[in-house]
Design a protein around this nucleic acid. Structure first.
Lengths: 335, 335
DNA sequence: CCGGCGTATCGAACCGGTTCGATCAACATC
DNA sequence: GATGTTGATCGAACCGGTTCGATACGCCGG
């Protein structure tokens, strides 16, 4: 590998001039610039990013930390971020915490050790310790998906209250009253907001929520399956089930199929968030989806703004909340 | 951040001794080692990975390059690799080429610039130029999924011929003769092998393959959809469709649903590779799946062996091919 | 008491860049 | 003709480690 000294020797200038020529071509005379450039191509010089990062104290890399890179929601956001970053000469390092707090922390620390220029984080936890840890990170950063109380950083996400409310309203309109809700972990903002959307919409309509109809599915497939089963074995079954996320709703569909219930004939189903092959799942689930491309785009822009603009560090943290979209399916029947 | 010189000063030893104490504790006297360790914790010293990589010329990072990190097949492999790597103090950098050759090349070059210790690659292309590029990479490396002619590197994958043959045999056993095949891009090893498995099994059974029943779905959802449509509008429709991968088979299912055909009553369907929510898709597709966890584990072991063992560089490249597994569903009926 | 040897530690060079104050020539100003 | 200004280039220090030959010391046998 050719080093900057090889280029300097061939161009008969000092090392510092070569460095200057690449980082700030305007400050070098046209003649020397030309000589340096031809010398560089002649020896096939490419600056060593590691050495650059060490000397500059910051790299051109952006950390992307989520709980599950396989989740298409995060996948879309990642793709948008990658494309935008690439256009601005930045490189995205994808990492997956598997939803484990310890792993997330280790990953973030590792990334900071790599002197990343910025961090896009989907927080996986909450609470004082966690907030303190996140707040201690001095790297430009944008949080998304999960709004965490106490973290004063740019946040980009969807209106989860609205998401819950929209589907509840839809089911009410169809005449449903015995509506069950499979909730996520209530300490998560997305989960509690979606639940609040359900509860308040029910209240506004003057419909009482049967406590037996609210079960906890932990946002996971397995817990969602169990929760759905608990709903389905009740003597007075709900006429509709609202899943606070995709995994739990589909687990509920599976449970219904296994018990021989037909959807939507016996029980209607609606969910928040799409899944990859939703169009071939029968019935087509009625859902509310987030505009992942838009979210990804906004995240990318905010983060690169923070990274590249000098005065951005002083700008206050900003929350950007997008409205989700209603996508009708065939999984909800009129009563 | 505390540097190695802070530690040296506090422990009253030279910088080189501190470095030695961490990289090779055996060569330092017990007393000094103790002093250095307490000094290090006192100032909160953590070695800068960037500086280490620069000085050593190699880092503790492993590059993982695939065409689509969202694909659960790659996801499982990634997870296995990450876990195994973490146990051996290595860190996985995930990247996504979106299946684009140019992007893949740029990513690999970037990773090499980062002086990665090793590379796990799912090749996205083929041909002389590509092979030459891959061969020029001197980093320890394991290829997987796609076997590429001419690349002399460790390879880990599944027996794709067998995968195609198993499903074909299954359909023949059920009495099907008019079996259609949605093929992938034939320049890809996986695609051609799966196709070969189909053709040769048909030939062995003495059943002629109708040329109109073999269509190209490019391994993608959209091309697979079109290909399936071409099959379904023929006057003499096939009684069974075999999709060479998951995306094309599910696209075919969608096409069937849209045209009002029932699966399996009108047409049977089978596919190679699982998808995330296959258990809630009606009917449950009969398929042949790869043992992704096993694959991931083998990839991880081979790669870390190459990385950590000094003499591994001289070991010849090795191919490891696993047999896929048959998973019966409800999508194939007996004729 | 001396030469030989092994072990613990050190100093200096190096990895490949960046950065900033110093230098110097050329030109403008008075 | 002396002084001031400007722009191009350079040298040296630095980022934070690693590595290896040199050195110093203690212990051994003769």
């Amino acid at each position: 590998m050719a080093t900057i000294r090889d280029v300097a020797a061939l161009a008969e200038v000092s090392v510092s001039t070569v460095s200057l020529a690449f980082s700030n071509p305007g400050r070098v005379s046209a003649r020397t610039l030309e000589r340096i450039r031809t010398a560089a191509t002649a020896v096939g010089y490419v600056a060593d990013p590691l050495a650059q990062s060490l000397a500059r104290g910051r790299s051109k890399m952006i950390g992307f930390v989520v709980g599950n890179v396989g989740n298409p929601f995060f996948g879309d956001i990642r793709r948008e971020l990658e494309n935008y970053a690439l256009e601005h000469e930045h490189f995205v390092l994808i990492t997956d915490s598997s939803g484990k707090l310890e792993r997330e922390r280790a990953l973030i620390e590792h990334l900071i050790g790599l002197k990343i220029a910025g961090l896009a984080l989907a927080p996986s936890s909450f609470g004082a310790d966690y907030v303190e840890f996140i707040q201690s990170i001095k790297v430009p950063m944008v949080c998304f998906d999960q709004k965490v109380e106490g973290i004063e950083r740019d946040f980009v996400g969807s209106d989860n209250f609205l998401a819950g409310a929209m589907l509840t309203e839809h089911l009410l309109q169809l005449g449903h009253r015995r509506i069950a809700f499979i909730a996520g972990p209530q300490h998560l903002h997305t989960a509690s907001e979606r639940y609040r959307g359900f509860v308040e919409t029910m209240a506004s309509a003057g419909v009482e929520v049967n406590p037996n109809y609210v079960v906890d599915g932990q946002f996971t497939r397995s817990a969602g399956y169990e929760a759905a089963m608990r709903l389905l074995i009740q003597p007075e079954r709900p006429t509709a089930i609202l899943g606070a996320n995709n995994a739990m709703a589909l687990a509920a569909l599976q449970a219904m199929q296994e018990l021989g219930f037909s959807c939507p004939d016996d029980i209607s189903l609606a969910m928040i968030d799409n899944v990859q092959w939703s169009s071939v799942i029968t019935p087509r689930i009625t859902m509310v989806v987030q505009d992942t491309l838009q979210l990804g785009n906004i995240i990318a822009r905010r983060l690169l703004h923070r990274i590249t603009s000098a005065e951005a560090a002083h700008e206050p943290a900003q929350d950007l909340v997008l409205a989700p979209k209603f996508v009708p399916g065939t999984s909800c029947r009129r009563l």
